[in-house]
Write a protein that binds this DNA or RNA. Sequence first.
DNA 1: CGCGAAGAAGACAATTATATCTTTTATTGT
DNA 2: ACAATAAAAGATATAATTGTCTTCTTCGCG
Lengths: 159, 159
Amino acid sequence: MAIFSKTCEYAIRAVFFIAQKTSVGTRVGIRDIAAGIDSPELYLGKILQDLSRRGLISSAKGPNGGFFITGEMLNQPIIEIVKAIDGDSLFVGCGLGLKQCSELNPCPLHNEFKEIRSTLTSMLSRITVGEFNDELIGGILALRKAEDDLPFNNKKKSK
Amino acid sequence: MAIFSKTCEYAIRAVFFIAQKTSVGTRVGIRDIAAGIDSPELYLGKILQDLSRRGLISSAKGPNGGFFITGEMLNQPIIEIVKAIDGDSLFVGCGLGLKQCSELNPCPLHNEFKEIRSTLTSMLSRITVGEFNDELIGGILALRKAEDDLPFNNKKKSK
DNA sequence: CGCGAAGAAGACAATTATATCTTTTATTGT
DNA sequence: ACAATAAAAGATATAATTGTCTTCTTCGCG
């Protein structure tokens, strides 16, 4: 068990990827995103649909279409993505899965988990979707393998 | 997605429960544990088997048998349970699921996750299996619903 | 010894998460 | 209008997780 579900990992990486592409002025298609973040293309399609329906990203059909992220969405914290995909159980539930766990009837790890949760929540609330654009463009941060590991076909799409 | 898998939640609660019973000198059967922590009885059986095979709890068959926890096991940190059940992906993997994420090739959340992980790790390493015995006995902490919600048959086992 | 109480073990069923495929719809450029 | 492109949507497949059932083995006690 990682912190996020696989779906959520793909979603976060995809959103960072799209944000970065948007910041240099281009829309990106599913194929390019999948290549850019190392994810199964068709599955990613479903995830992007979902994010788009929830208003976390935008999309356009047709030639020159693709996914993009508008200005204000760049300032969304990534906790929104996590909540949209994985729900809020990471932030609200009892660490031991007790429905009735509360201040009055706490489980043994209740107080410890409050700390973990608040650390997580504040981190994910602080980081925004557009925050890493420059580092991603500069190659300082990665959403997949290193750049020179990219398959040769990753440039045929630059229009 | 909660932090731990459901299986792991049951496991931790069960171990706390057994530890507490052991500390007052009795072995406990699967049925009583399941009732004590609100878990499916038969599924719990599998989990306890697994923990027992890994040496995190002990068991005895036959009449007056049941599960118990020996002295030194009481000092085990609960991170051992988590690792046994959920593996160590919570503690070592990249938060965005990138296999090649590292200091040299970090994902955008790499440094933030180091903090989360170390908080989690130290907390789970610090808390021991026997740590809450007194509070559990005293009813200050809970592993299920409040005591007075217990089904009437929970005392028929006191031997 | 032999019965009953318990855990051990393996097969199986249901659910959820993950992934793929196919068809449809919308948009753009010509 | 037409052809090409790209996302949307729905149906289906696979795998992992979670949960149940049945049978077997072991042990303690009379």
